[in-house]
Design a protein around this nucleic acid. Sequence first.
DNA 1: CTGAAAGCGCTTACAG
DNA 2: CTGAAAGCGCTTACAG
Lengths: 351, 351
Amino acid sequence: MGIKRIARLANVSIGTVDRVLHNRTGVSKETEKKVRKVIKEIGYTKNTTASRLKLASVKKIKFAVLIPETKNKWSYWKLPKKGIGRAVKELMELGVEVDYFEFLDSSTYKGLMDEIFLKDYDAIVTVAFFENESNELLDRANKKDIPVVFIDTEIELEMPANFVRQDSYKAGRVAGRLLNGLVGDKGCYFVVNMLNDRGIHANNVQRERGFRKFFEDSGQDVQIRTINYSLSGEFVVTKEMETWFATDDRKGIFVTNSKSHLLPRILEEYQVKNTFIVGFDLNKQNLKHLENGKIDFLINQQPRYQGYVAIKNLFNYLTKQDGSELNLDIPVEIMVKENIPFGPKVFAKMI
Amino acid sequence: MGIKRIARLANVSIGTVDRVLHNRTGVSKETEKKVRKVIKEIGYTKNTTASRLKLASVKKIKFAVLIPETKNKWSYWKLPKKGIGRAVKELMELGVEVDYFEFLDSSTYKGLMDEIFLKDYDAIVTVAFFENESNELLDRANKKDIPVVFIDTEIELEMPANFVRQDSYKAGRVAGRLLNGLVGDKGCYFVVNMLNDRGIHANNVQRERGFRKFFEDSGQDVQIRTINYSLSGEFVVTKEMETWFATDDRKGIFVTNSKSHLLPRILEEYQVKNTFIVGFDLNKQNLKHLENGKIDFLINQQPRYQGYVAIKNLFNYLTKQDGSELNLDIPVEIMVKENIPFGPKVFAKMI
DNA sequence: CTGAAAGCGCTTACAG
DNA sequence: CTGAAAGCGCTTACAG
């Protein structure tokens, strides 16, 4: 069982077996053939644990993680980072290390990317926010044969890439289904996009597309209006919103990002009743409103799990050539008041 | 770093360090104290991988899995078994082995339990279907210091026990929330329990309790009627069902087990319209009806994941004394047509 | 082109 | 009560 057995059966030393297994030079055609035959016959598979035990001390596996800043107290990005941290901790004794690089905008992204390529990382986990920069990173990584996983957001790139993210289009369809169930087929629906300094996010665009497609496919005669708000500065109620509040009484609002918690207070102020809300992400404010019934559904992207699984799967790829899960579709998890997770136990699944 | 360093710092041999670490006898108080001090100072933690690498060859970790029969083509129990298989495969190179025992009823359960205790298993994964037998198993395991994890179903036992299962009461509440959103507060609701030979299942009872509690808590004036059907033999439409079909036009049906797929055909036959259905489990027939819109929501218990995580967490307990996750609350996963997983990728999460 | 030896961190069996 | 040696399966550095 193992390299020793192969060596014995093939009548060579374990050093030679190792050379064949790693496709290293310095083995005669003859010997190689002999060894490969035995490997195949006994159905050898490498003991990754033993391998890493040895390598942990001499050849670390180093991850570069390039994500948005997490300094902000309620930063969403704390969550994937947490998942990454947990994965790294689990793999620490197998010689895994990580460096974090946190960007602010496309320019800092570029600068940190340069820094990353100066050192020799074995794999990169990042976020595809900027098309040009993402393409550059992927290109440079490919040339150096460094695997990359993009988490959270999928955008179209020039080369095939690995994404661990929720399918935003699908999530939008799910939101359509949920609101439709509550509001009915004669309703008036609103899609609310909250924009930050960078403008609208790729995920939000896809979510709206999916939402609209849901109603299109179902052949229902519903009205859907989109409202874009800028979140730079104070959140103010515009004229557009006021007319919106005055629409007939069956309403469904789909907030395409994590800010759905901004709506209930405003709706109350304007005495808008019977309005259902679907939003994204289990942040504290959103959960509060799910709890008190002012938000009806939240969609969870399992951000912790995304980070965790990106590292784990890259590790499997690097150590076992198992790249089967470098692309991962995170399920669209539907949360209501009654199934929100509390306590560490439930969250354990998502890490 | 490691046992060697401790030995050097404490001026003893690694053998002695090992004795202290494993609380073995044959170390003088003096030496022990000295060694413990160093261990504490350098914040030593054992390298589990190295440990298992050695032990894999001399001391296997053997799991006994005692679950209902999986022979039946569509057996639900194939799923946890699959998850268990995957976990065992992942841990194989660390010396993990498993034996499966499949029972039919309480008597075969008892017989297989006896068989299990004849050999020396390191841990047991089973299902708490039979109160007496479960208590006996737990008691005997406790006496031999063998950890046990019950999956799928939680029942009250005489001693504290580990459960990896979905909270059925909570799942019932979720079902209430979902149907309520669709049917409204003046609706008439039905709870349908499908009984097999063993009578009603503990999970079904809890699901119904949660469902009813949801409406009680929400203070809504709704009618809820329970109908129990025996599934032994043919599924027939009873007089009771017929009166039920004739009730006013807003209807919600909560099927407390995996058989919700039996209803759509019957409702059609009796021309019952506008009736919403919530059921459990992503079996093929249920998914078909979710797809074609005849079932509105399905609740997933992540059976694969339950099996997987039971093994993984028992392994962590046995090798790292980490028993923090032997009790696990599997999230109540809400499925609609738009977020049903297809293909292996998505299911990867649940294994 | 090939082999023998040392070592990763831990465990065990044996010697004293 | 304590230590020295051998070994888990793999990798590396060196010798020939």
